[in-house]
Computed example of a mutant assay.
Amino acid sequence: MARASLDELLLDYEDFLRQRRKRLWGKDDREAPVRAVGWQQKKAASFDPSDPAAHWKAYAAWLDHEDSAIVANTTICLIHQANYLLDQQIAALERLVHHRGRLQRTTGRGKACGTGEAAGDCPGGE
Rank of each mutant, 00 (worst) to 15 (best):
L96M: 09
D67G: 03
V37I: 15
W25D: 10
A53D: 13
E14F: 09
N83W: 00
R100A: 00
N83R: 11
L9P: 00
L6E: 05
Q104L: 06
L9G: 06
G110M: 04
R109V: 12
Y84F: 06
D28F: 14
D12N: 10
Q104V: 00
D12W: 01
F47K: 01
V34D: 03
P33K: 01
A69K: 01
N73K: 06
M1F: 04
T115M: 03
G125I: 07
R30W: 05
R100M: 06
V34A: 08
R100E: 10
L93Q: 14
S50M: 09
T74N: 07
V34F: 07
H98M: 04
L78H: 00
I79F: 07
I90M: 12
K42S: 07
G116Q: 11
G108C: 06
V71R: 15
G101C: 05
A92Y: 03
Y84K: 13
R30V: 10
S50V: 04
A54H: 07
R30C: 00
I70V: 15
K42F: 04
R102H: 10
G110I: 01
T106Y: 15
I90L: 13
E66Q: 11
S50A: 13
N83A: 03
L63Q: 05
A58F: 07
K43N: 10
Y13R: 07
T74L: 04
G116T: 05
A32Y: 09
A72Q: 04
G101L: 09
C113E: 04
G26K: 04
L11Y: 00
G26Y: 01
